[in-house]
Amino acid sequence: MSDAADGRTGPPVVASAGSSDPAAPLVVLLHGRGSDERQIVTLAGHLPEGPAYAAVRAPIAEGGGYAWFANRGIGRPVAESLAENMAWFRAWLQEVAPAGRPVVLVGFSGGAAFAGGLLLAEPTRYAGVALLHGTLPFDAGLSVEPSQLEGAHTFIAQGDGDHVIPRDLLDRTWAYLREESGASTRSHRDAGGHGLSAQAVGALAGWVAERLDLAR
């Protein structure tokens, strides 16, 4: 990978919204593959007031946008790429949100897989992790044993008409988070495709508000 295509030479590009208080709870928005921080930051306008919102640009240039990891196929990260970029992200997060500052991750599509990797690696690091229309990064060097996410809080949203992420990965993620992981999981499913419905955003907003109120 060339330096031009690899954004891990420094801290990420971030689009901010919400509170500018460095002690405010932080909601990190992780965009989908081929998108960027400018698109996902618009979600902040539909989420609770009070937190700081940071929409982070993924480090790999791809298709006019950016990606969080190299792929073996849709929803199937290359383990080494995922691990490297998770380490890069965690170094940034430690700078902006040291211990004591509540952090919620909200990932869409490829960003959901990345958020899922961060969750599996450190289940209790986050006040909550939301996976929107995406899969956990199965078979990518991270444990998905039963009860791996004991003590974690997750939100999952899927659409029955989603034909972008392979259905077997969506179903496996849904079942694992709700039945096997040990996490406390809130779930939303509707008839939509690979995009957030108003109902899903409303459910997400309620969950984010609840998680941050409890985290305080």
Rank of each mutant, 00 (worst) to 15 (best):
D3M: 13
G7N: 08
R8Y: 08
A15D: 15
P22Q: 03
L29F: 10
R33C: 12
S35Y: 08
I40W: 01
V41Y: 05
E49A: 15
P51R: 02
Y53E: 07
A54E: 15
A54H: 14
V56H: 03
E62C: 12
G63V: 13
G65Y: 02
G65I: 09
Y66V: 07
A70W: 00
P77W: 10
V78S: 08
V78T: 10
S81C: 07
M86V: 14
W88Q: 06
F89M: 15
F89P: 10
A91F: 11
A91V: 15
W92T: 13
Q94K: 13
Q94P: 10
E95P: 04
V96M: 08
P98R: 01
A99C: 01
V104L: 02
V106T: 06
G111C: 11
G111R: 02
A112I: 12
F114R: 02
A115L: 03
G117C: 12
G117W: 03
A121R: 13
A121F: 10
P123S: 08
R125S: 15
V129S: 02
A130L: 04
L131H: 07
L131N: 03
L132I: 06
G141C: 05
L142W: 02
L142D: 03
P146V: 09
G151D: 11
A152D: 10
T154R: 01
T154V: 07
I156R: 00
I156E: 08
Q158Y: 10
D160E: 14
H163S: 13
H163R: 15
H163T: 15
I165C: 11
L169I: 13
L169M: 13
D171F: 12
D171H: 10
T173Y: 00
T173N: 01
W174N: 06
A175N: 14
R186E: 15
G192K: 06
G195T: 09
L196I: 11
S197L: 14
A198C: 09
A198E: 10
V201T: 09
A203E: 06
L204F: 12
A205I: 09
G206R: 02
R211P: 05
L212G: 05
A215T: 02
